[in-house]
Simulated assay, not measured.
Amino acid sequence: MTPATAPTLEVVVRRAAPTDAESVMEMVREIAAHEGQSEHVTVTSARWADVLARPDVIVLLASRDGRDLGYVSAIRRLHLWSDRDVIALDDLYVREEARNAGVGRALMATLASRHAEPDRLKITWGVEPDNLAAQRFYQRLGAGLRHKVVAGWDPTGYADVVRSGAAQGH
Protein backbone atom coordinates (compact mmCIF):
# COMPACT_ATOMS: atom_id res chain seq x y z
CA MET A 1 0.00 0.00 0.00
CA THR A 2 1.13 3.50 -0.70
CA PRO A 3 0.89 6.07 2.08
CA ALA A 4 -2.11 7.62 0.32
CA THR A 5 -4.06 4.34 0.46
CA ALA A 6 -2.82 3.00 3.80
CA PRO A 7 -5.59 2.59 6.39
CA THR A 8 -5.61 5.14 9.16
CA LEU A 9 -5.52 4.19 12.83
CA GLU A 10 -7.41 7.33 13.85
CA VAL A 11 -10.84 6.84 15.38
CA VAL A 12 -13.34 9.52 14.42
CA VAL A 13 -16.28 10.14 16.76
CA ARG A 14 -19.32 12.02 15.50
CA ARG A 15 -22.96 12.47 16.40
CA ALA A 16 -25.22 10.01 14.59
CA ALA A 17 -27.73 11.49 12.17
CA PRO A 18 -31.03 10.01 10.99
CA THR A 19 -29.17 8.67 7.95
CA ASP A 20 -27.13 6.47 10.35
CA ALA A 21 -30.21 4.63 11.58
CA GLU A 22 -29.40 1.34 9.85
CA SER A 23 -25.86 1.22 11.25
CA VAL A 24 -27.09 2.06 14.76
CA MET A 25 -29.81 -0.59 14.46
CA GLU A 26 -27.24 -3.19 13.40
CA MET A 27 -25.08 -2.47 16.45
CA VAL A 28 -28.12 -2.45 18.76
CA ARG A 29 -28.86 -5.97 17.52
CA GLU A 30 -25.22 -6.94 18.13
CA ILE A 31 -25.14 -5.69 21.72
CA ALA A 32 -28.50 -7.31 22.45
CA ALA A 33 -27.25 -10.64 21.08
CA HIS A 34 -24.02 -10.26 23.10
CA GLU A 35 -26.10 -9.73 26.25
CA GLY A 36 -28.58 -12.54 25.43
CA GLN A 37 -31.40 -10.01 25.09
CA SER A 38 -32.23 -10.13 21.37
CA GLU A 39 -35.91 -10.82 22.03
CA HIS A 40 -36.23 -7.38 23.65
CA VAL A 41 -35.17 -5.45 20.54
CA THR A 42 -38.41 -4.27 18.97
CA VAL A 43 -37.33 -0.90 17.59
CA THR A 44 -37.01 -0.54 13.82
CA SER A 45 -34.50 1.34 11.68
CA ALA A 46 -37.28 3.73 10.67
CA ARG A 47 -37.97 4.53 14.31
CA TRP A 48 -34.22 4.98 14.93
CA ALA A 49 -34.20 7.59 12.18
CA ASP A 50 -36.91 9.51 14.07
CA VAL A 51 -35.16 9.09 17.42
CA LEU A 52 -31.80 10.27 16.06
CA ALA A 53 -33.43 13.57 15.06
CA ARG A 54 -34.45 14.33 18.67
CA PRO A 55 -32.28 16.93 20.43
CA ASP A 56 -32.42 15.12 23.80
CA VAL A 57 -31.15 11.84 22.32
CA ILE A 58 -27.39 11.59 21.99
CA VAL A 59 -25.90 8.80 19.89
CA LEU A 60 -22.22 9.05 19.04
CA LEU A 61 -20.61 6.76 16.47
CA ALA A 62 -16.94 5.83 16.41
CA SER A 63 -15.50 4.88 13.05
CA ARG A 64 -12.23 4.19 11.36
CA ASP A 65 -11.77 4.26 7.59
CA GLY A 66 -15.53 4.59 7.13
CA ARG A 67 -16.41 1.51 9.22
CA ASP A 68 -18.53 2.06 12.32
CA LEU A 69 -16.79 0.42 15.28
CA GLY A 70 -19.11 1.29 18.15
CA TYR A 71 -21.52 3.73 19.68
CA VAL A 72 -22.59 5.34 22.89
CA SER A 73 -26.22 6.30 23.39
CA ALA A 74 -27.63 8.58 26.06
CA ILE A 75 -30.48 10.92 26.88
CA ARG A 76 -30.26 14.33 28.50
CA ARG A 77 -32.94 14.46 31.17
CA LEU A 78 -33.91 16.32 34.31
CA HIS A 79 -32.80 14.91 37.67
CA LEU A 80 -35.63 16.03 39.95
CA TRP A 81 -33.73 16.00 43.26
CA SER A 82 -31.01 18.31 42.05
CA ASP A 83 -33.09 20.33 39.56
CA ARG A 84 -30.26 19.80 37.08
CA ASP A 85 -30.03 17.86 33.89
CA VAL A 86 -28.01 14.66 33.78
CA ILE A 87 -26.78 12.57 30.89
CA ALA A 88 -28.34 9.11 31.28
CA LEU A 89 -26.12 6.74 29.32
CA ASP A 90 -28.03 3.84 27.82
CA ASP A 91 -25.44 1.78 25.92
CA LEU A 92 -21.74 1.78 25.27
CA TYR A 93 -20.91 -0.80 22.63
CA VAL A 94 -17.69 -1.52 20.77
CA ARG A 95 -17.52 -4.23 18.15
CA GLU A 96 -15.34 -7.13 19.18
CA GLU A 97 -12.63 -6.50 16.58
CA ALA A 98 -12.20 -2.94 17.87
CA ARG A 99 -12.10 -3.63 21.61
CA ASN A 100 -9.03 -2.70 23.65
CA ALA A 101 -8.03 -0.18 20.99
CA GLY A 102 -9.25 3.05 22.61
CA VAL A 103 -12.65 3.14 20.89
CA GLY A 104 -14.71 2.96 24.09
CA ARG A 105 -12.52 5.57 25.75
CA ALA A 106 -12.89 7.86 22.71
CA LEU A 107 -16.69 7.50 22.80
CA MET A 108 -16.87 8.21 26.53
CA ALA A 109 -14.44 11.15 26.29
CA THR A 110 -16.47 12.67 23.46
CA LEU A 111 -19.73 12.19 25.35
CA ALA A 112 -18.23 13.95 28.35
CA SER A 113 -16.50 16.77 26.48
CA ARG A 114 -19.30 17.65 24.07
CA HIS A 115 -22.42 16.91 26.08
CA ALA A 116 -21.67 16.92 29.81
CA GLU A 117 -18.68 19.16 30.49
CA PRO A 118 -20.02 22.40 28.96
CA ASP A 119 -22.86 22.44 31.54
CA ARG A 120 -20.97 20.42 34.21
CA LEU A 121 -23.53 17.60 34.02
CA LYS A 122 -23.19 14.23 35.69
CA ILE A 123 -23.25 11.14 33.51
CA THR A 124 -25.02 8.13 35.00
CA TRP A 125 -25.41 4.55 33.80
CA GLY A 126 -25.82 0.98 34.91
CA VAL A 127 -23.60 -2.03 34.37
CA GLU A 128 -24.39 -5.68 34.92
CA PRO A 129 -22.92 -6.99 38.21
CA ASP A 130 -21.10 -9.82 36.43
CA ASN A 131 -19.55 -7.57 33.75
CA LEU A 132 -16.29 -7.10 35.61
CA ALA A 133 -14.34 -6.02 32.51
CA ALA A 134 -16.76 -3.12 31.98
CA GLN A 135 -16.56 -2.18 35.65
CA ARG A 136 -12.75 -2.08 35.46
CA PHE A 137 -12.94 0.02 32.28
CA TYR A 138 -15.28 2.53 33.92
CA GLN A 139 -13.10 2.74 37.01
CA ARG A 140 -10.06 3.45 34.81
CA LEU A 141 -12.03 6.36 33.36
CA GLY A 142 -12.55 7.68 36.90
CA ALA A 143 -16.19 6.66 37.33
CA GLY A 144 -17.46 5.67 40.76
CA LEU A 145 -19.34 2.41 41.13
CA ARG A 146 -22.12 1.69 43.61
CA HIS A 147 -24.46 -1.24 43.77
CA LYS A 148 -28.16 -0.63 43.26
CA VAL A 149 -31.06 -2.85 42.33
CA VAL A 150 -32.97 -1.59 39.30
CA ALA A 151 -36.70 -2.28 39.21
CA GLY A 152 -38.89 -2.32 36.13
CA TRP A 153 -42.67 -2.31 36.07
CA ASP A 154 -44.14 -3.41 32.76
CA PRO A 155 -47.84 -3.18 31.84
CA THR A 156 -48.62 -6.77 32.83
CA GLY A 157 -47.03 -6.10 36.21
CA TYR A 158 -49.02 -3.00 37.08
CA ALA A 159 -52.31 -3.98 35.42
CA ASP A 160 -53.77 -5.52 38.59
CA VAL A 161 -52.87 -2.44 40.64
CA VAL A 162 -54.55 -0.16 38.11
CA ARG A 163 -57.65 -2.39 37.91
CA SER A 164 -57.95 -2.57 41.70
CA GLY A 165 -58.65 1.13 41.86
CA ALA A 166 -55.41 2.08 43.55
CA ALA A 167 -55.13 4.90 41.03
CA GLN A 168 -58.18 6.69 42.48
CA GLY A 169 -56.15 9.80 43.29
CA HIS A 170 -56.14 11.08 39.72
Results as ranks from 00 to 15, higher is better:
Glu39Cys: 05
Arg47Val: 14
Leu9His: 12
Trp81Gln: 13
Pro129Phe: 04
Thr5Ser: 14
Trp153Gly: 05
Thr156Val: 12
Val43His: 06
Arg84Tyr: 06
Arg95Cys: 05
Val11Gln: 03
Tyr93Glu: 01
Trp125Asp: 00
Leu60Glu: 04
Thr42Ser: 11
Ile75Trp: 04
Arg15His: 04
Ala46Asp: 15
Asp56Thr: 10
Ser23Leu: 12
Leu92Asn: 01
Tyr71Phe: 15
Glu35Phe: 07
Trp81Thr: 13
Leu89Asn: 01
Pro18Gly: 04
Arg29Leu: 14
Leu132Phe: 10
Val24Asp: 02
Ala134Thr: 09
Val94Glu: 00
Thr110Gly: 00
Arg99Phe: 00
Leu80Glu: 09
Ala21Leu: 03
Phe137Lys: 01
Gln168Glu: 13
His115Val: 05
Gly126Glu: 12
Leu121Met: 14
Arg114Asn: 10
Gly104Ala: 08
His40Trp: 09
Leu60Cys: 08
Met108Lys: 02
Val150Gly: 07
Ala88Leu: 11
Glu10Val: 14
Ile31Pro: 05
Leu92Ser: 02
Ser63Val: 01
Ser113Tyr: 05
Arg163Glu: 15
Arg163Pro: 06
His79Met: 06
Val12Ala: 11
Leu61His: 05
Ser45Asp: 12
Ala116Met: 07
Glu97Trp: 02
Glu128Cys: 01
Ser82Val: 03
Gly102Lys: 02
Gly36Thr: 10
Arg163His: 13
Ala6His: 06
Val28Arg: 08
Arg140Trp: 01
Ile87His: 05
Gly36Phe: 02
Met25Leu: 14
Asp50Ala: 10
Ala32Lys: 11
Pro118Arg: 07
Glu96Trp: 08
Ala98Arg: 05
Leu69Gly: 00
Glu26Thr: 14
Met108Arg: 01
Ala46Leu: 07
Val57Thr: 12
Arg136Ala: 15
Ala53Thr: 02
Arg77Gly: 10
Met25Thr: 06
Thr2Ser: 15
Ser164Asp: 15
Val57Pro: 00
Asp85His: 13
Gly157Ile: 03
Arg14Ile: 01
Val12Trp: 01
Val57His: 05
Ser82Met: 06
Arg14Val: 02
Pro129Ala: 04
Gly144Tyr: 03
Gln168Trp: 09
Met25Pro: 00
Asn131Ser: 09
Gly157Gln: 15
Leu107Gln: 00
Ser45Gln: 13
Ala159Val: 07
Ile75Asp: 01
Glu35Val: 06
Leu61Asn: 05
Pro3Arg: 09
Thr5Val: 12
Val149Met: 10
Val13Trp: 06
Val162Pro: 03
Val43Gln: 05
Ile123Leu: 08
Asn131Leu: 11
Tyr71Arg: 02
Val94Asp: 02
Ala6Gln: 13
His170Val: 06
Val51Asp: 09
Arg105Ile: 01
Tyr158Ile: 15
Ala32Cys: 10
Pro155Ile: 05
Ala46Val: 12
Gly102Cys: 10
Arg99Asn: 02
Arg95Gln: 10
His34Gly: 00
Ala21Glu: 03
